[in-house]
Design a protein around this nucleic acid. Structure first.
Length: 431
RNA sequence: UCUGGAGUAGCUCAGCGGCAGAGCGGGUGGCUGUUAACCACUAGGUCGUGGGUUCAAAUCCCUCCUCCAGAGCCA
């Protein structure tokens, strides 16, 4: 084990001499005293350097140290006179590891293009750091939630020969002497997996070549997709609302400080507990018409429509029972009225949009074949998927949660490109 | 792809026909409790690209490029 202390743990070492390893975040100079804001990725700490407490060489570092220079600091943990920092380090010694060249990201404002071009450096700043710690918490909580409920993690492949949804939004790539597509969803594979494991989830990146240029779109994003045998659409919605509530509560419990850094209004998050309101597609259409929007039955909701509908509620809502034409072939028809399918979307409040899409799946062999024919999909390509309806078909359901949109909502950030370490959008492939 | 907006110092921006500017960052000096510290001095420019109008263009007109916001599509 390394002998140095992590900055986040200094409260356990009050009045002790400790050694920290990290980077210079900022320096404030005075005459015979100077202040160094130190960061090591776990916390920011103020270090105080007094002329009569250190060697002349160390004191002189105030003129040579630059922002982001790497250093080893040794000193005594003490309470800071001001309330802003809590604890600070009275420095005894500083060893320079490297003097950084002029660092491009200053503590003042920057434009988004510049920051994204410098994403490799921007990760060191306070806001991205807080957001990505919350991302970690959401991933951790997701794994925990499903693991504790008898789900087995069965990952789906990234290379696929077919599309789960439309074929216009796929990234195509060469695969030796064949063509392959990058996956859009692990769902079809998960449907096979649950017949062997009962309840499964997959968690990984997926790829969509949509030419969408909005604050809710990435070309590469992460999705968590649970799939459950013997679950109907209502079981599916119950699981989804429990899951979303759980990750919110875990973030509130373990990442308060990060939410504070992001100035997130946590009273909104504290209200997120089951049950969530459930409205049918038809009821959602009525809300729109009541508010004077010109909306045609059978269309899908646009972003402004979603925002308007969710305004009536202070929690995420489910919209279920969609017109069959708007939804993909694998969704099960409503047996009360086959104009509708048993699909359900969860829309986050505050304009963050759809975070979950799911459905009860079509488990009847003949109905599935009929849908595949009607949509002109290749029966041969879906042979293995159709097989699942031949050998002990059961009612089953599942959903996919978009990780970045969920994080964007929890963090209250405008654009989801900040919710992923290395965003890939229609205009960005690097760094 | 469509609609709107913007490209000027390393960064954030002002200037909108007549000498290229500020703040931050960099450099030098000052200051014993600073909080994106402060004060003084200082270096730093292909005004996105190509063309046009004009005695004179960062500024007006046109072309193209890039980015931002929104729409469509979606998680």
């Amino acid at each position: 084990m390394a002998k140095h202390t992590l900055a986040k743990n200094i409260d356990k070492h009050l009045n002790e001499t400790i050694t920290l390893k990290g980077w210079v975040y900022n320096i404030r100079k005075s005459g015979k005293i100077w202040f160094l804001i130190f960061r090591d990725g776990t916390e920011f700490i103020q270090c105080v350097i007094l002329k009569n407490e250190v060697s002349p060489e160390v004191f002189k570092l105030k003129t040579t140290l630059t922002q982001e220079s790497s250093i080893t600091v040794t000193g005594v943990v003490q309470e800071a006179p001001s309330q802003k920092f809590g604890y600070e380090i009275l420095v005894k010694n500083i060893e320079v590891i490297q003097i950084a060249e002029e660092y491009p990201i200053s503590l003042k404002e920057h434009g988004i293009e510049f920051l994204l071009d410098n994403r490799h450096l921007w990760l060191r700043s306070k806001l991205p750091n807080a957001i990505l710690k919350i991302r970690h918490e959401v991933s951790k909580a997701s794994r925990k939630f499903f693991d504790e409920r008898d789900f087995t993690l069965i990952d789906s492949p990234m290379f696929t020969p077919n599309a789960s949804e439309g074929t216009t939004t796929l990234f195509k790539t060469k695969y030796f002497d064949q063509e392959a597509y990058l996956t859009q969803s692990g769902q079809l594979y998960s449907e096979a997996a649950i017949m062997g494991f009962n309840k499964t989830y997959c968690f990984g990146p997926i790829f969509r070549a949509e030419k969408s240029k909005t604050r809710r779109h990435l070309t590469e994003f992460w999705m968590i997709e649970p799939e459950m045998a013997f679950y109907d659409i209502n079981d599916n919605m119950e699981l989804a609302e429990e899951y979303v509530s759980y990750i919110i509560q875990q973030v509130l419990e373990n990442r308060r400080k990060e939410l504070e850094i992001l100035k997130r209004d946590v009273t909104i998050l504290e209200k997120i507990k089951p049950p969530f309101p459930r409205i049918t597609y038809d009821e959602a259409v009525k809300i729109l018409q009541k508010n004077g929007r010109n909306f045609k039955w059978g269309d899908d909701f646009g972003a402004p429509d979603e925002t308007l509908i969710t305004k009536e509620f202070d929690k995420p809502i489910f919209i279920h029972r969609w017109p069959a034409e708007t939804k993909p072939f694998y969704m099960k028809r409503d047996k009360n009225d086959d104009k509708y399918v048993l699909g359900m979307d969860m829309i986050a409040p505050e304009g963050h949009g759809e975070i979950i899409g799911g459905s009860q799946r079509e488990d009847d062999l003949d109905l599935l074949l009929e849908r595949i024919k009607k949509e002109n999909l290749s029966e041969k390509m879906y042979n293995w998927y159709i097989d699942l309806r031949r050998y002990g078909s059961v009612p089953h359901s599942g959903f996919g949660l978009g990780l970045e949109r969920t994080i964007g909502w929890i963090c209250g950030i405008k654009h989801i490109r900040e919710a992923i370490p290395w965003p890939r959008t229609i205009v960005r492939l690097s760094p």
